[in-house]
Design a protein around this nucleic acid. Structure first.
Lengths: 248, 248
DNA sequence: CGGTAATTTGAAGAATGTCAAATCAGGTGG
DNA sequence: CCACCTGATTTGACATTCTTCAAATTACCG
């Protein structure tokens, strides 16, 4: 199932776009050299499954570019997204041999992979990797808990506004695509993927996006390109405090 | 607000009931001695708030006995539980100075606390603590993701069945209170707390519990004492695979 | 034996899901 | 370059689930 092509070019960690944010962020140059020995790149096309829940997983790795999702599926087919993986995010769990979730590339995706057992060995020896992984895992746990509030207590409209805020915020921390105060970004998810993220149906997602557009909270060009004229308004719609953060 | 009483008796780590499961599980005896120097016990009564979200938090610690909850609250009062803390669970985040969630004791509670900055210093020096904390955080993240599926995709009945399964499982790993194949346990949560856990109203919780009782999935003595005659039936009602696990 | 909080139950309403059909967008082959 | 095809998205009508508000009941505590 994994018919990705190997990259012919090998890349230097020093020039890596996620060098200072990924699991290797804290590594010294000698530690980086050892990581470089066990790393390899893998490329996936949009729509491809990186790994199926339950499958043996002999690597861990970082998203270098593109977006992937982590999802759980019930026997009857209901699915819930439980993670949205952006560049620098970590995939896999050291010490676990089988994947716990489906990982799917939603855009073209490049991953920097490490063979699992050498990586685990390296973790034992270099505290910087484990330290950084702990930090990242704690951040993910906080994000998961924020998400739980969204899933459990917010209305459909608030859920959509929350998701848009999150994407805008994450996007801004990378691209800062803001023309004269406006926040502008592309939705990296289909309506169905948004529904799986938010615990809604795709029809409800569509209706609420239309409603937010009609009420002037967002503007749309095509189905995916979003402009937010007033970020604090969006945050208000999300049910969050309308102050603080990147967009004061 | 924190009118807990200090414990007059200091306890030995060696005899601690959570010695082999808490954040200190991997520590050697010399490491334990250093932890012992910075630890102190705190006791809370049922209903007391351990810490408010946003408050300065100058300690981290472990639940020794009793149960606490982690909750988020929106401005208009809607609340969502995001963590259920049982004995050996860790409270607080190294490197963070203010609490991100409300922590409330739902039963009488004993915590083993460490002053934060000495603990952080110790973490830097002894990899065993950080290693164990990473492991525990990864487990919590998995639990949070399971919970996200419950919140996002399960029906009210499935949510209740899921919660009962989780409590039964956690209880069993400690007490194994099973008379002739039956699983028996006490609900440590009020209907309202269950509602906050599951993203429901307390009325819906009450109705679904009654329905499960009527259908013979569970039996109740009083409001809190639960008997599960057939665990696989309960798991089926939860929408999970009805096999595997502790109760095969 | 009251009093209070927790829980249950009922009736009605609102939000979201379901099913079906129409529309739109992008890519393809002619 | 255009008509067509396919999948994504939107829209509509209706069904269902869950919440809301209100009141009755139960359990526990002093």
């Amino acid at each position: 199932m994994l018919n990705e092509r190997s990259l012919s070019v090998s890349q230097e960690c020093a020039e890596c776009p996620i060098r200072h944010r990924a699991v290797c962020a804290r590594c010294e140059s000698d530690e980086l050299e050892r990581l470089e020995e066990i790393k390899y790149y893998r490329k996936f096309e949009a729509g491809q499954t990186v790994i199926w829940s339950g499958d043996r997983m002999d690597f861990v790795g970082s998203v270098v570019s593109g977006i992937a999702t982590l999802t759980q599926t019930m026997e009857d087919g209901r699915t819930q997204m439980v993670g949205l993986l952006l560049p620098s995010d970590f995939v896999g769990r050291p010490g676990r041999s089988n994947a716990a979730y489906d990982v799917v590339a939603t855009t073209d995706l490049v991953m920097c992979c490490f063979r699992k057992s050498p990586f685990e060995e390296l973790m034992r020896q270099t505290p910087h990797i484990a330290q950084r992984l702990l930090e990242m895992t704690l951040d993910e746990l906080d994000a998961a808990r924020e998400w739980m509030l969204v899933l459990g207590r917010k209305t459909a409209r608030e859920k959509i506004a929350s998701l848009l805020s999150i994407i805008a915020r994450r996007d801004a921390s990378i691209n800062m695509t803001t023309a004269h105060g406006n926040i502008v970004f592309d939705l990296p998810l289909t309506r169905e993927a948004m529904a799986d993220y938010l615990g809604l149906t795709l029809e409800t997602v569509s209706r609420q996006i239309s409603a937010l557009r009609k009420d002037g909270v967002i503007e749309l060009e095509g189905k995916r390109h979003v402009t937010v004229p007033d970020m604090s308004r969006l945050l208000e719609e999300a049910g969050d405090d309308a102050d603080g953060g990147v967009f004061a």
